[in-house]
């Protein structure tokens, strides 16, 4: 697949997150990379080095925008000034789709700069979907929402996380950025089966996948993005692409960042599973209709 309406009918392969320590290497060596994912907020500025670097990258590579501050799940209305800046950037990058997280992070205009987990209720899903639609209509771009890793659950929740994700994306008619590592991290923190999660999301809506490393503590796992991808996450990824089809995949490595080559080599390990999935000639996932859990 995975060219679908949610990733702008593109068929991207394995991408890398564009990070500052790798700028010089990428600009001077011009390594072969299928596409780069940029953090939108880094480039939502008026000028200077960030935009100079971005323009040079855009001259050589395909770029997809990924954000961390739209906070679709916050009760607040979207910030128009923020959206205006974001739209200007999308015109510059020509990103075929735009992703951000299924979370909240601002309250009454104050920002946490964190990806805080949602209460899984119908009202929260409705409000979140409404905001995704507002943003999509303003930006005139396909939107994919990413499941976050979480460390708490709410008493008020009325459904599982994957049911909530399905409810939101069906109501919003948007795509999913399936973060396989986040599913794994949350499954360990909350005690569910990660395969139940992957089996039960609407596969035809998966626009992109994320893989990453995490860190285990005594009582919980933190989504640190500072390690290679662990085996259980690779296995879950292999399972996910069997269900969703071969999908644009990105390795996130955001802390203790090693050399560009090391990060790229780690990302390219996904090829093994992609090849297997291609050889298996898996049919494109069928559209599933939403079954209300209520």
């Amino acid at each position: 697949m995975p060219a679908n309406p949610y990733n702008g009918f593109t068929d991207y392969g394995i991408g890398l997150g564009l990070r500052v320590p790798h700028y010089d290497h990428i600009l001077s060596e011009k390594p072969t990379v299928d596409w780069f994912e940029i953090i939108s907020e880094t480039f939502m500025v008026d000028g200077g080095r960030p935009l100079e670097v971005l323009d040079r990258i855009l001259a050589q590579y395909r770029v997809v925008q990924h954000g961390v501050s739209l906070y679709f799940g916050s009760a607040d209305d979207p910030d128009r000034a923020h959206l205006k800046k974001l739209k200007a950037l999308t015109k510059r990058t020509k990103t075929p789709w735009l992703s951000d997280h299924l979370c909240w992070g601002s309250v009454d205009g104050t920002y946490s700069h964190d990806l805080l987990p949602m209460p899984y209720t119908f009202a929260a899903a409705k409000r979140t979907a409404e905001k995704i639609r507002m943003v999509r209509d303003y930006l005139e771009l396909p939107i994919a929402v990413e499941n976050v890793s979480s460390y708490t659950e709410f008493h008020v929740s009325e459904m599982t996380e994957w049911e909530f994700l399905a409810e939101v994306v069906e109501l919003a008619d948007c795509g999913i950025l399936l973060d396989v590592n986040n599913i794994y991290v949350s499954s360990k923190n909350h005690g569910f089966d990660p395969y139940d999660y992957v089996n039960n999301v609407p596969h035809h809506r998966v626009a992109q996948m994320h893989i990453a490393g995490h860190t285990k503590f005594e009582k919980y796992i933190l989504d640190t993005h500072d390690h290679p991808v662990l085996d259980p996450v690779w296995k879950l990824y292999a399972h996910a692409i069997k269900l969703c089809g071969v999908t644009a995949t990105l390795l996130e490595w955001d802390d203790k960042i090693p050399s560009f080559q090391e990060v790229h080599d780690e990302a390219l390990k996904a090829n093994q599973f992609i090849t297997e999935a291609r050889e298996a000639k898996i049919p494109a996932p069928k559209k599933t209709s939403r079954v209300r859990v209520r």
């Binding site: 009760a75 607040d76 209460p119 209720t121 119908f122 009202a123 409000r127 008020v156």
Partner: peptide, 8 residues
């Protein structure tokens, strides 16, 4: 949480 107000 059965409304946007309750979500807030």
């Amino acid at each position: 949480v059965d409304s946007t107000r309750a979500l807030a």
